[in-house]
Design a protein around this nucleic acid. Structure first.
Length: 479
RNA sequence: GCCCCUGUCGUCUAGAGGCCUAGGACAUCUCCCUUUCACGGAGAAGACCGGGAUUCGAAUUCCCGUGGGGGUACCA
């Protein structure tokens, strides 16, 4: 392995299902790695004992896999730089913290929560900068004994030097911070668990990350992290901060805006490949302007410099369109398989696989989400159907419709139910027979009687698959 | 409050000083196709946040203002 190998990671915390924002960050990392022949690593950041949950970890695995973002190293597949779960790396952080203590970059702090809050309140009142006072920086041995006697457990704080810090972000460009505005921050909590800012750096060093591609909500953490790299004498990776994904009201995307987890979208009937394609276009654009592209094509075309600098609003219109495109272009046999979970309430055994494919083919056009197929296909099942009042009134109860259906009842006898093309011809004949009624009037009456709807699949398919008995039954019921 | 990031059609975006009469996609509207809905095809409408400055020339550079987002934790 060479020193300039590209290694990137996605490091979600299992305190919720995989969020679309995290998913997009994962995607960008994956695309970057694969485009450069590098490695994509999954690390689970479960140091928040309160909120972390095994079920969420599983959801993260499943969602990432569904999107096709297979990781090269991770908790389940292992790798040379494991373990890949922070809860299994606790001793590593302790060692790094001791190093920082020894080198004088960090110190123990015995302040209680209450003392800290009081300090903050005072600073607020005096309109001063809200910064930790460093009061524990130079404690006498007596003070420390005193604190210990009180049973206090210390945290470890990292000391911020007094200077400016500048770094080059691959997306944002130069970013500069005045470190005098930053307070000495906690790297080890009093319970011996590292804080986020410390653990990420320790892990990213150990796991040899070359690039850190993440959301811009981390941009203000970056100076603290760079300081730790420096203090540890480690190589600083390249940073790339991607704009946030916002809800249509331009606030942070959250539950109250509807689905936020990848798994929810998939459940609703969004195809993972369509979802991934859509996500890629949320902030990134291909050099040739192409929009609908499979993952491997996106990998080929991907580069960090085509990531848009600002945040993006997540709207459903384009996702819906794109999902429809993927549904329509998918081979029917595969589509049927993907659709089956949404057909559980029906007795599929009444049709052959071929017939099922014919049905799906006939109803797939207007589908936006797979879940809509349940309703789209319902009149192909069962004997009788329910017809709602409006259709009954406006379509079936007219004189013309009665006439059409009565005529059609007789006509049904001679239909060749096994041949859809022939049915088209025969329906054509029937329309001619019914002149001067408009073709549309004729067809609507039959469609309404057979399906209870004014729109739906091709009539040839409907008549053929319903077959003689059910066609006659439904026509009779409608008259 | 303070700090950081950011602002092109409703939305996603192209755009790196003249190629911009600002391009594409989705959504919207109109028309065509048609046994319905759709799909598909053709077209329309629609944007550079405001103000200064630099320049022969600015969506593109720089300042100020303003809108939006993020951070300011013993959360990640």
């Amino acid at each position: 392995m060479t020193n300039n190998e590209i290694r990137v990671r996605i490091a979600p915390s299992p305190s919720g299902n995989l969020h679309v924002g995290t998913a997009r960050t994962a995607l960008f990392n994956y695309l970057f790695a694969k485009n450069k022949g590098g490695k994509f690593i999954l690390r689970i950041e479960d140091t928040d004992l309160e909120r972390s949950n095994e079920a969420y970890t599983q959801n993260i695995f499943d969602s990432l896999k569904a999107m096709g973002l297979q990781w090269d190293e991770g908790p389940d597949v292992g790798g040379a730089y494991g373990p890949y779960k922070q809860s299994e790396r606790l001793d590593i952080y302790t060692k790094y913290a001791e190093k920082l203590l020894e080198s004088g970059h960090a110190y123990y702090c015995w302040c209680s929560q209450e003392e800290l809050e009081a300090e903050k309140a005072l600073q607020l009142e005096e309109k001063k900068q809200i910064i930790y006072s460093k009061r524990c920086k130079n404690l006498s041995p007596e003070d420390i004994e005193q604190f210990k006697a009180e049973g206090r457990k210390p945290v470890i704080r990292f000391e911020i030097p007094s200077r400016q810090l500048k770094f080059k972000d691959l997306i944002k460009g130069d970013v500069e911070f005045d470190l005098n505005l930053l307070g000495d921050f906690v790297i080890m909590k009093s319970n011996g668990i590292p804080t986020y800012n410390f653990a990420v750096v320790a892990d990213d060093i150990d796991m040899k990350m070359s690039h850190i591609i993440r959301g811009e909500d981390h941009i203000s953490n970056t100076p603290r992290q760079i300081l730790i790299y420096e203090a540890l004498g480690a190589k600083i990776p390249e940073f790339a901060h991607v704009g946030m994904i916002l809800a249509p009201d331009k606030t942070k995307l959250s539950k109250r805006h509807g689905a936020t987890a990848v798994s929810e979208f998939i459940q609703q009937g969004y195809l993972p490949e369509a979802f991934v394609n859509f996500l890629a276009l949320l902030g990134w654009s291909s050099p040739d302007g192409a929009e609908i592209m499979p993952l491997d094509e996106i990998i080929q075309k991907f580069s960090l410099d085509r990531i848009h600098i600002s945040s993006a609003v997540f709207e459903f219109d384009k996702l819906n369109w794109m999902n429809g495109m993927y549904i329509r272009s998918m081979p029917v046999s595969e589509l049927v398989e993907r659709i089956k979970p949404y057909l559980q309430e029906f007795d599929l055994s009444i049709y052959t696989q071929e017939q099922l494919e014919t049905i799906i083919n006939a109803v797939k056009e207007p589908l936006v989400k797979l879940s809509e197929v349940t309703n789209a296909v319902s009149y192909f099942f069962g004997d009788s159907i329910n017809i709602d009042n409006e259709i009954q009134e406006t379509v079936l109860n007219t004189e013309e419709s009665k006439k059409v259906l009565t005529e059609f009842l007789g006509f049904c006898e001679g239909i060749d139910y096994g041949d859809i093309e022939k049915i088209h011809d025969q329906l054509g004949e029937f329309r001619t027979m019914m002149k001067p009624l408009k073709p549309k009037q004729t067809m609507w009456a039959i469609r309404a009687a057979l399906t209870g709807r004014t729109h739906g699949a091709d009539m040839g398919v409907i008549v053929s698959l319903l077959a003689k008995n059910r066609v006659i039954l439904r026509i009779k019921e409608a008259i």
